[in-house]
Design a protein around this nucleic acid. Structure first.
Lengths: 356, 356
DNA sequence: TTTCAACACGAAAACGTTTTCGAAACACAA
DNA sequence: TTGTGTTTCGAAAACGTTTTCGTGTTGAAA
């Protein structure tokens, strides 16, 4: 008979289990007070050399580590910050988290990640839940639904409780707090100008509906660039896409019904989809149509042809956001500084989808 | 003179600041004991209808929320789980987090994200740090360095302290715990067989160095498929790539020096890079060379041509991992069940990079 | 009037720390 | 012996909860 499983004796397992040791247990074992143990471990001069060494040796032997929760309760800080983002599958948001995590870690903070799924309710629930002591501060980018509703009471509430909030990318003027953004208008302006400089005039815009702040701003930049080059704005060339819907056929229509020379898309997905549809319609990129996207993600980089984009540098944004939050946390109740809005430089990454 | 800034009076700010109210404060205000307040809020029958209502009204007015840290200390559970992954920028890991987060949230848990950056030390530090009360359990995928060193003491230690650990994707046999994996050998076998079924025989493999567990297993599957179809294994067609190095020219060599009919790549990056280099060398995909990748990521989907891949379903993996961990947390100290290893089904997603 | 429930509430312990303050013990000078 | 310091330690409060147990009050039954 073959043995198929190895059953592990429970008492044996428990023997191996060194449950976490506490100050109280050490104190009892060494027959001193809890205070003495605590002080010894923190090398207080109040305690004699002898006792200190004895305690420290014992603590090391039993691998004593102070309980973080108890410390949090005592210090009223958790050394944890929370980042709330609409979703994590987007490359941009993943890079932001990466940036946040690194800076946070360097400063001894941990990062709690919450996904709002673009839902107002989840955003509210998460914030209310966590504001009750679990974390020291928030970094967040608004969900689409929140931006549409323009209801920010959950954020004001948290701020009024004295908890710092740093907003990034999708922000709102209705909340006073630290912010990290890019100059969407300017970046879009530059991207459009870049196309115009190549001698292209019939430039289509694929953007989001207006309540998405960044979409609106980028649309603004696009229009501004056209105007300052005395190119008429043709509303037929502007496609506003509701994010939930299947948008392929809209782009197909756009490309079929207009002899477009270039496309500026406000995100990566729109850009790559336009590229694929253009291909399907027998247009060559960049010979027939030039394409510029937004967000320097993995798609643009590995697409064929690779796509010229406006790079947002999510890692930098995340890093700066974490730095701002932590600065505010650590300087707390010193002079209340004014809230700052920091603008991160964007960069046009030229690739194969635009002709030169 | 134009006003450039609006200075906000600090006392005013503080007036608006409703700092978190505690049981003690409510008790004092209503001139009852803390116990009475606590019981009232939890609708204890010990307390008279009158008092209960009074307390509840007051608590609602001042927006009382119990302090999570205090609760954690009392209950010895934090309702937080930690996921440690090598990096977040990889689409696969992002999807896993997404899966974890959703299931965790459904069950009232929060998710702490730690990035090991493929570094053994960071993995160790993070685990040791957090094991001291901050979280209830771990979900993790090993860093490359840890796999190389084969040093898992930090994980055993945590487990011995009674903290449950669930490993996924990059796991090891040296640790006894719950695991979620895919059958890498089988999936690679199928992918290779898929190519063979198309009549392709000269199939190259682009894989990682052997210490990466999944790379090794997928290599095994590839070889197995060749053998069972009586195709000789040509080591020249097997390219093992060290992850840190710049590998483009290796792939280029591989493609130039052999008249390859198909490529099986163990990850997305290798696949798309091979595709681009093949293109550059004037080969048509899939007419001249068929390509299959691994990990159903964003790159494969939006590449041109889109890439046939083995889909790992990270969301499902993450969800299952979270479920397993939470089950163990909540059933704790009931019968110690045996550790389970769950195998997630993979799926071959057929796209344009393989001919039919 | 006594007795006994039932009711309504409070005191205190517990979770694991840190820190303040007081005090015991001892040494040493006057 | 007394007074003055110094050294070394412990008690207790504090952080914010929950929960056990005790207790005082009331009303009714005996």
């Amino acid at each position: 008979m073959k043995k198929k499983y190895i059953f592990i004796d429970k008492s044996l397992v428990n023997k191996k289990m060194k449950r976490k040791v506490t100050l109280k247990q050490i104190a009892k074992e060494l027959d001193v007070s809890i205070s003495t143990v605590s002080k010894s471990l923190r090398n207080s001069l109040e305690i004699s050399e002898d006792t200190r060494q004895k305690v420290q040796a014992f603590a090391k032997l039993y691998n004593y580590k102070p309980n973080n929760i108890a410390l949090s309760l005592k210090n009223k800080k958790t050394k944890t910050i929370c980042i709330i983002i609409p979703e994590i599958i987007h490359h941009f948001f993943a890079t932001v988290i990466s940036g946040v995590e690194h800076v946070a870690n360097e400063n001894g903070y941990n990062v709690l990640v919450c996904l709002s799924d673009e839902s107002f309710d989840k955003e509210v629930i998460n914030m209310e839940m966590l504001a009750s002591g679990s974390i020291d501060g928030f970094i967040m980018s608004l969900s689409k639904e929140t931006q549409q509703k323009k209801d920010f009471h959950h954020i004001t509430e948290v701020i009024n409780q004295g908890m710092p909030v740093v907003m990034f990318d999708r922000v709102t003027n209705e909340i006073l707090c630290d912010k990290i953004i890019i100059d969407d208008v300017h970046a879009a302006y530059n991207a459009t100008q870049f196309l115009i400089d190549k001698g292209l005039k019939k430039i289509a815009l694929i953007t989001t509906v207006d309540y998405v702040s960044v979409g609106k701003l980028r649309t603004e930049g696009y229009k501004k660039a056209l105007k300052s080059n005395d190119i008429d704005i043709n509303e037929n060339l502007i496609l506003k896409i509701e994010d939930t819907e299947d948008f392929d056929h809209y782009i197909e229509e756009l490309l079929q019904n207009n002899d477009i020379e270039a496309i500026f898309a406000v995100n990566e997905l729109f850009a790559v989809t336009a590229l694929k549809i253009a291909n399907k319609l027998g247009k060559n990129i960049p010979e027939d149509i030039s394409i510029i996207g937004f967000t320097d993600g993995i798609i643009s980089k590995y697409s064929t042809p690779s796509i010229t984009t406006v790079s947002q540098n999510g890692i930098k944004m995340g890093g700066k956001a974490a730095k701002m939050l932590i600065d505010r946390l650590e300087s707390e109740d010193e002079e209340e500084e004014q809230y700052k809005t920091e603008v991160i430089e964007t960069e046009l990454v030229e690739r194969e989808s635009t002709k030169n």
